[in-house]
């Protein structure tokens, strides 16, 4: 998820201190804490599987692009950077397939996009 989870958790930690103190209107406190609660729930949902999801997606994209997914460093920030690199290449590949009228290639790319979108789905998804 973007913004990345650690930066959001850090921000929420500061927010909790700010809103725990006196002088904050009840409605503002309730709103901020309600939103924070929802964000913490989403972070909790994705946290355990985050590396697995990125590794799966990066491998699938690398196969599709005939590229090599870098897995030398399994920190989420590194996996996410690799994911961004591969997704950028995928956009270029899909654009090229459309220009060339390569229907099979387009179908394969759309199939991967559908799988990766399903993989990232949250339990609170509206769609």
């Amino acid at each position: 998820m973007i913004p990345d989870v650690p930066s959001v958790l850090g921000e929420l930690a500061q927010l909790l201190i700010r809103y725990a103190g006196p002088g904050v209107a009840d409605a503002e406190r309730a709103s901020a804490l309600g939103l924070s609660s929802a964000l913490l729930a989403m972070a909790a949902e994705v946290w355990d599987g985050a590396a697995q999801t990125l590794v799966q997606e990066n491998r699938a994209l690398a196969r599709l692009l005939d590229d090599a997914a870098c897995e030398a460093d399994l920190r989420l920030s590194v996996l996410r950077a690799e994911n961004a690199r591969l997704r950028g290449l995928l956009i270029a590949a899909q654009t090229a397939a459309e220009t060339a009228g390569d229907v099979a290639r387009q179908t394969a790319i759309w199939a991967e996009l559908r799988v990766s979108t399903e993989r990232r789905k949250l339990s609170v998804s509206l769609v």
């Binding site: 998820m1 973007i2 939103l35 979108t117 990232r120 789905k121 509206l126």
Partner: peptide, 30 residues
């Protein structure tokens, strides 16, 4: 998400739509 990342607005309301709706919006486009 960009407003949060760039530091212009660090309120939770800036994170919430980015986290909650980005994947759902992709699903909607599909």
């Amino acid at each position: 998400a960009r407003a949060f990342i760039d530091g212009g607005n660090r309120e939770p309301i800036m994170i919430y739509p980015a986290w909650w709706l980005t994947n759902a919006q992709d699903r909607a486009i599909l």
